[in-house]
Nucleic acid binder design. Structure first.
Lengths: 161, 161
DNA sequence: CCCGCCGTGGGTTTCTTTCCCATTTGAACC
DNA sequence: GGTTCAAATGGGAAAGAAACCCACGGCGGG
C-alpha cells in the first residue's frame, strides 16, 4: 500500500445502468481505493474515460500549480494569473471528483456521458491500465487493441530496457 | 485557506433567470466565498465573464494601477496620455463589485449582459478556473474547449517545467 | 450440492434546482 | 410631498436528480 501499490490489471465488460451507473470489478476497485476513497474521473480520448485515485492524481496537479504560484510571486503577476486561470479552466473540463457508492458503483457525471458515448443499457469495457482504470466504449476499445497490439512487444521491451 | 485555498474546479450548466439571475453550484460558490462575501465580476473575452473573490482580485487591480501611475509620474508617457486614458477607461468598464444573494444567486449587472450574450432563459456554462469562476456562453465555451484542449498536455507540462 | 460472494435492478429518501409569487425598494409623475 | 408604477429582491414550494439502501439472481468455490 505504499505510493506504488498494486498494479491495476484486468479487462472486464460491464453494462451501463439506466441511471448511468457502472459497477467496477472488485479486483480493480479494491486496489484503486487502497489509497483513499476520493477518486478523479478524467476524459482521455473520445470513447475513453480514466479513473484515478485522487491521491495519485493530486500531486501531479499540485506540483504544476505550485510552480505557478512561485512564478506568480516572483513578480510577473498579471500574466501568470492568466496562465493559471487557463490551466484551471481546461482542468475543469477534463476532470471531475467522483466517489464510489456501495458495491463499488460509479455514477458517470453529466458532462462525461456524451464523451464516453455509451447509452444507458450499453456495454462498457473496464480496463486496468496499471496506474489507473480506464472505461472504454467497446468499439473504440476494439480499434485501439487491434491498432496497438502488434507493437506491444516492442513497447514492452522499450520499457524494460 | 490562505491566498490559495481550494482550487475552483468543476463544469456545470445552469439556466439564466428571466431577470438575469444565475444560481451558482454550491461546490464553486462555497470555496469562492471562503475568502469573503465581496466578489468582483469581470469581462474576459466576448461570451465569458469571470467571478473573483474581491480579496484575490484587488491586488491584481492595484498592481495594474500602480504600473499606470508609475509610468505617468515618470513622464514616460507624456505624449501617450491617450493610451493611459484608454487603459483607465477599459479598467473601469472591465469589472464591477457584486455579491451573491440567498441560494448563491448572482445578478448579472446591466453592462455585462450583452457581453455575455446569453438571453434570459438561456443556458450558461459555469466553469471553475482554479483562481476564479467563469461564466461562459455555451457556444463560446465549446469553441474554446475544442481549440485549446489538444494542446492541454503541452500547456500543463510547460507550467510544470 | 450447498453456500457465499458478486453484479444488477429497484425503491425510497434527501438534497438541489427551478419556477413562481409576495414583498420591498427606488424612482418618476402628478 | 404624496401617490403610483415599475423593477428588483427574497423566499416558498414543486419538480427533478442524485445518493443511499436493500433485495433478488447468477456464478464460482468449497
Amino acid at each position: 500500500m505504499g505510493a506504488a501499490g498494486e498494479l491495476l490489471i484486468g479487462e472486464v465488460v460491464r453494462t451501463l445502468d439506466e441511471r448511468f451507473r457502472l459497477s467496477l470489478p472488485v479486483d480493480l476497485a479494491g486496489p484503486l481505493l487502497a489509497e483513499g476513497s476520493k477518486l478523479v474521473l478524467a476524459k482521455e480520448r473520445g470513447g475513453c474515460l480514466s479513473l484515478w485515485s485522487a491521491a495519485v492524481w493530486r500531486p501531479r496537479l499540485d506540483a504544476a500549480l505550485d510552480v505557478l504560484r512561485t512564478k506568480l510571486q516572483a513578480g510577473l503577476l498579471a500574466q501568470r494569473v492568466g496562465e493559471v486561470q487557463q490551466a484551471g479552466r481546461l482542468l475543469s473540463a477534463r476532470h471531475a471528483a467522483v466517489s464510489l457508492s456501495g458495491r463499488d458503483r460509479l455514477v458517470i457525471p453529466e458532462g462525461f456521458r456524451g464523451f464516453l458515448g455509451v447509452e444507458p443499457g450499453g456495454d462498457v469495457v473496464v480496463v486496468g491500465a496499471a496506474v489507473c482504470v480506464e472505461l472504454w466504449h467497446p468499439q473504440a476499445w476494439q480499434q485501439v487493441i487491434t491498432a496497438e497490439m502488434p507493437d506491444f512487444r516492442r513497447r514492452l521491451d522499450a520499457l524494460t530496457g
